[in-house]
């Protein structure tokens, strides 16, 4: 059996807008990936711990409240602490372009803004996921 890509679609922060996260989860599923969805209002600690227990290859963070600069890097730090630095972390939501360099410098490898085609996100994950050695 081939290695199935496992993705954690996670919503850190307090906003309840999960339309994008759910649409993305469904697109990943239809692209043959296994998707674990956290539901809304999760803390970085919960997200990192679930990523560890579920042995995911990708953590896709979605936040529309504007708290991304605080929350996304926290998730990355916690993943590294747990020895999961090789997990691909991507982000999306209402994220101004000017915040993107900051997020990239803090381990969010790609940021998908509003209007990103689903196929683009799917393809990015397929080509950038770190296969375990």
């Amino acid at each position: 059996m081939e290695h199935k890509i496992r993705v954690l679609v996670a919503k850190p922060g307090l906003d309840g807008h999960d339309r994008g996260a759910k649409v993305l989860a469904r697109a990943f599923m239809e692209a043959g990936m296994e998707v674990i969805y956290t539901g809304i209002r999760r803390t970085p600690e919960q997200i990192a711990e679930v990523a560890r227990q579920e042995d995911v290859d990708v953590v896709a963070l979605s936040c529309l409240s504007g708290a991304h600069n605080t929350l996304f890097p926290k998730v990355v730090d916690l993943l590294r602490e747990k020895g999961m630095g090789d997990v691909l972390v991507v982000g999306g939501g209402v994220i101004p372009d000017e915040d993107v360099p900051f997020l990239k410098a803090h381990g969010i490898e790609e940021v998908f803004g509003p209007g990103t085609p689903l196929a683009t996100s799917v393809e990015y994950i397929r080509t950038h996921v770190n296969r375990e050695a």
Binding site: G13, L14, R41, G66, A67, T70, L71
Partner: peptide
């Protein structure tokens, strides 16, 4: 909106944002 005071730990990064 969630009935949390501004000094609640979950409020970090969210205060005054939306």
């Amino acid at each position: 909106q969630l009935g949390l005071d501004a000094d609640h730990p979950l409020a970090e990064g969210e205060v005054g944002k939306v």
